[in-house]
Amino acid sequence: VTLIGATTENPSFEVISALLSRCQIYILQNLTEEELISLLQKAIKTDAVFSTKKIEIAEYEALIRLSGGDARKLLNIFELLVNALDSDEINITNKTVLDNVQQNMALYDKAGEQHYDIISAFIKSIRGSDPNAAVYWLARMIAGGEDASFIARRLLILASEDIGNANPNALLLANTCFQSVNVIGWPESRIILSQTVVYLATSAKSNASYEAIGKAQQLVAQTGDLPVPLHLRNAPTKLMKNIGYGAAYQYAHAFEGNFADQEYLPENISGTKFYQPGQNSAEAKAQEHLKKLWKGKYGY
Rank of each mutant, 00 (worst) to 15 (best):
E79L: 04
N104Q: 13
E146H: 04
E61R: 13
A143S: 13
A48S: 15
A143D: 15
E113P: 02
P131L: 06
G144F: 06
D70E: 01
N76A: 05
P131D: 10
K95C: 00
L74A: 11
S87L: 02
D147R: 08
Q103I: 11
V82I: 14
P131E: 09
K45P: 00
S38R: 13
Y60P: 02
Q103T: 14
S125W: 02
A148N: 07
D86N: 15
E113Y: 12
A111M: 10
V97W: 01
V49W: 03
N104K: 15
G144V: 10
S149F: 07
N76K: 12
H115C: 12
F50D: 02
L74F: 03
D47T: 04
K73T: 04
D99T: 11
F150Q: 13
S67H: 09
L74W: 06
D109E: 12
K53N: 06
D130N: 14
R72E: 06
Y60W: 15
D130F: 01
H115M: 07
A71H: 05
L107G: 08
N91W: 02
A84T: 13
E113K: 15
K110Q: 13
L80S: 14
T93M: 04
L40S: 10
F78H: 06
I151E: 09
L81R: 12
K124Y: 06
L155M: 13
L40W: 00
N76Q: 11
G128M: 05
S87T: 11
R154S: 07
A58Y: 03
F50H: 04
L74C: 09
R127S: 05
V82Y: 08
E59H: 03
T96Q: 11
A121Q: 04
N94Q: 11
I77D: 05
D117T: 13
I126S: 09
S51D: 05
L155K: 08
R140N: 10
A111F: 04
P131A: 11
L80C: 13
Q102R: 15
A121H: 08
I57H: 02
K54C: 08
E56F: 03
K95L: 06
A111W: 03
S125A: 13
Y108H: 15
K45Q: 14
K53T: 06
A139C: 12
N76G: 10
I142C: 05
L74R: 07
I64F: 03
N94C: 01
L74N: 09
D130P: 00
I77A: 09
G68F: 00
N83Q: 13
Y108I: 11
K45M: 05
D147L: 01
R140K: 15
L138C: 02
I64N: 05
I57R: 05
G69D: 05
D147W: 05
I44F: 04
K45A: 14
R72P: 03
L74D: 12
D47N: 15
A121S: 14
K124E: 01
E61V: 00
D47A: 06
I118Y: 02
D99H: 13
S149K: 15
I151D: 04
L107Q: 15
E61H: 10
D147A: 08
F150K: 12
K124I: 07
E61Y: 01
L81C: 07
A71Y: 02
I118N: 05
M105H: 09
P131H: 10
S149N: 15
I92L: 02
Q41F: 00
E79P: 00
L66Y: 13
Q114F: 06
S120M: 01
I77N: 10
L74S: 07
D130E: 00
Q102I: 11
K73R: 15
R65A: 12
S120D: 04
